[in-house]
Design a protein around this nucleic acid. Structure first.
Lengths: 141, 141
DNA sequence: ACGAAATCTACAACCACTGTAGCAACCAGG
DNA sequence: CCTGGTTGCTACAGTGGTTGTAGATTTCGT
């Protein structure tokens, strides 16, 4: 039987975050002490560790919910799990491509910025005039 | 004199976003028609384009506010601008490093997932057991 | 039995928007 | 000049994924 703070420490999660996960139905409602405090089983620790690890891998809570559903129904096809992970990989790769374009552009801006005052600043100039941009960074983050 | 919708179209911004920028003081309050509609100068178009471009490069609105302040005071040192851009570059590079670790881990998971049912699924196994992770992906996004 | 630490609920704030409802204004065609 | 479709207005709520706060209660070690 674990208190919420213990669970938090062992998984590197904030206490409020655990309560939030419970609230949105990602973690089951645990038992309570007579005084009303949550007491967790070790299975809850595993489940939370799963969630945190998936979050670290960039999965959204919605994707994690799907993964947990699949995990709770072990007879279903691995292909569904594979699909979710694959989708996630594509998203990660797309983000990398975009960030690399940003890095190129920022580096170029900085390389060319060697003047003394803001009025000659290449960085601001590039920001003012998109057409001075080499990188084809799209919209969104 | 430009209506808000025109400004939106020319900069690829949602109308609400422009009003939001005004609300948080990133754009100046424009003049109004007798009926109360916003009418913009071309200078506002430039300023908004600057903001949007900087956003595309991943700068936070706070950083953009700083850049705009510097831009409004052309006698100040370019070094300050340089610092902000440099900070941004570091952040982008840190994000890339993390995302590349995630990509490695996701690829590895997918490579090893070739079973039929969820009970044998390598993806879920890796998610359940962090120690099976090769990549040293840290916390946070 | 005492006091410090942890936990409780309920709610607000964060970032950077995006969407909604219900109304008013604007502009082009007839 | 009138009409009606488009655009704009304000005010507010919602998104995702937490994090922080206030004020009360409970638990645990000594």
């Amino acid at each position: 039987m674990l208190a919420i703070g213990t669970l938090a420490k062992r998984t590197g999660t904030k206490v409020q975050t655990i309560r939030y996960y419970e609230q949105i139905g990602l973690l089951p409602e645990p038992g309570r002490t007579e005084g009303g405090q949550r007491r967790y089983e070790y299975a809850d620790l595993d489940r939370l560790a799963f969630v945190r690890h998936a979050r670290q891998l960039g999965f959204t809570l919605e994707a994690i919910r799907e993964l947990l559903d699949l995990s709770d129904n072990p007879s279903r096809s691995c292909a569904e799990v594979d699909l979710i992970a694959h989708r996630q990989l594509k998203e990660v790769e797309a983000r990398i491509v975009r960030l690399e374009a940003l890095r190129r552009e920022l580096k170029r801006m900085l390389r060319e910025c060697s003047r003394d005052t803001v009025s000659d600043c290449r960085v601001l100039e590039v920001l003012r005039d998109h057409s001075a941009c080499l990188a084809d960074h799209g919209t969104g983050a």
